[in-house]
């Protein structure tokens, strides 16, 4: 009865809200998803460039071209999403104090990710991977985990920052 009355009052004149902040703290954060997506962007650019070298494109080539463009943009957006989640949910005041350049780095990733969507540019795709690797190094450092850089054992065989676990 009282609760129903309060609900009615709240609908007409909302009360102030307090959050219990009970997000499920899964605490599962790993920049590898962003790194794999950045590698995928490079791979799609490579495949698009291979396709562009053909003199005549068949119907199937056109279909593949369309798919590669779509996937390149999807994965560039995935990079941005994955980084935003770690930046927004994992990074808190102590991490920002330790790595004050994080905000600028994340902003650069957002801009470069968008540039990768707008262009078919290996240079821009490589720049995105470099920035994401930099972010991964900072992320693992905040957890006190050492990192190593190694060439990923699959195309596009680029340098990736991995945690030393």
């Amino acid at each position: 009865m009282l609760n129903s009355l309060l609900k009615t009052l709240h609908r007409s004149k909302p009360f102030d809200k307090a959050s219990a902040h009970c997000d499920i703290p899964c605490k599962i954060y790993d920049p590898i998803s962003a790194q794999l997506a950045a590698l995928s962007v490079i791979r799609f650019v490579d495949l698009l460039n291979e396709l562009s070298e053909k003199e005549n494109l068949s119907f199937a080539d056109h279909a593949q071209f369309s798919r590669l463009i779509s996937e390149k943009e999807t994965h560039a957006e995935k990079v941005k999403h994955e980084i935003r989640v770690i930046w927004g949910d994992y990074f808190k005041a102590p991490q920002f104090e330790k790595y004050p350049d994080t905000n600028e780095l994340v902003h650069n990733i957002m801009l470069t990710g968008s540039a990768c969507k707008q262009h078919v540019s290996r240079e821009k795709a490589e720049a995105l991977l470099t920035l994401v690797n930099e972010f991964a190094a900072s992320f693992w450092a905040t957890k006190g985990v050492e990192t190593k850089t190694a060439t990923c054992p699959y195309p596009p065989a680029e340098q990736v920052v991995y945690p030393k676990l």
């Binding site: 102030d16 809200k17 307090a18 959050s19 219990a20 902040h21 808190k92 005041a93």
Partner: peptide, 13 residues
Amino acid sequence: LVVNSEQYGVIVK
């Protein structure tokens, strides 16, 4: 209490 946390905003704990 209801507090105004710098990190989490207005929360009840």
